[in-house]
């Protein structure tokens, strides 16, 4: 006899389904509780990510070091970049909520998984954008500073006079490069940890479904 047929016979036997019967009140208590599904966690973490990057751009606004930018063209660039950053933030926010709202537990398993991954993807893109944005604006501002900041130019002239111009540039580039790499590594490690744990099962099952379509 086919193994599964034997199992089916047993599966549908009445006495085999003697699960503890829950009462009306048991179920009522259950619907009052909070969900702990991965969708909820992805939603919370995503909002924190959006919040983190927005707070970061706000906190830099009042940074004292920025005052010296006011004498150079960097202040126009920074203003432009800030506006651009907000437009992109709202765009991603809009996409995120649109994706989030399409997640429905009554879709097929495959569509549900795709929609969750799409929501996650949006936030991933936003984070990637921010990292590139951070690197890009650092380079641009640094470039302008070297060209226009009187204090910095004085330092460069001094270094050149001593024959240390190369060392001065190299030191600046290495320090900035190291700082950016460190920030990047910490953030990527953090994401890898959070989402690796959260999405491990979903990823595995999604690949399993995809494999069946080949």
């Amino acid at each position: 006899m086919d193994e599964l047929e034997l199992l089916k016979k047993d599966w549908n036997r009445k006495d085999n389904n003697s699960f503890p019967k829950l009462s009306y009140n048991d179920i009522y208590k259950m619907i009052l509780k909070r969900s702990s599904s991965i969708v909820k966690w992805i939603f919370i973490i995503s909002l924190l990510e959006f919040g983190f990057w927005t707070a970061l751009s706000f906190s830099f606004k009042d940074f004292d070091g920025f005052e010296r930018f006011n004498d150079t063209d960097a202040k126009y660039i920074i203003l432009g970049l800030t506006v651009f950053g907000y437009v992109v933030l709202f765009y991603f926010f809009f996409l995120f909520f649109k994706n989030y709202r399409t997640i429905s537990v009554t879709d097929s398993a495959k569509v549900l998984m795709e929609n969750i991954l799409k929501t996650r993807q949006t936030v991933k893109h936003y984070v990637a954008f921010n990292l590139l944005f951070m690197i890009g604006s650092t380079i641009i501002v640094l470039f302008i500073e070297f060209k226009q900041d009187s204090e910095l130019i004085a330092q460069v002239t001094q270094a050149t006079a001593n024959g240390n111009a190369f060392m001065f540039y190299a030191k600046t580039i290495v320090i900035v490069g190291l700082a950016l790499t460190l920030v990047l590594a910490i953030l990527l490690g953090f994401y890898w940890l959070i989402y690796g744990i959260l999405l491990k099962k979903l990823d595995r099952n999604y690949h399993e479904l995809k494999k069946m379509e080949l």
Binding site: S36, S37, I38, V39, V105, T106, D107, S108, A109, L112, M113, I116, L198, K201, L202, N205
Partner: peptide, 17 residues
């Protein structure tokens, strides 16, 4: 029928063991 779908989706996709 609707319960099968939600139940399996929760077990396969949403729930963390």
């Amino acid at each position: 029928t609707w319960m099968y779908r939600v139940g399996l989706n929760t077990a396969i996709t949403l729930y963390r063991k």
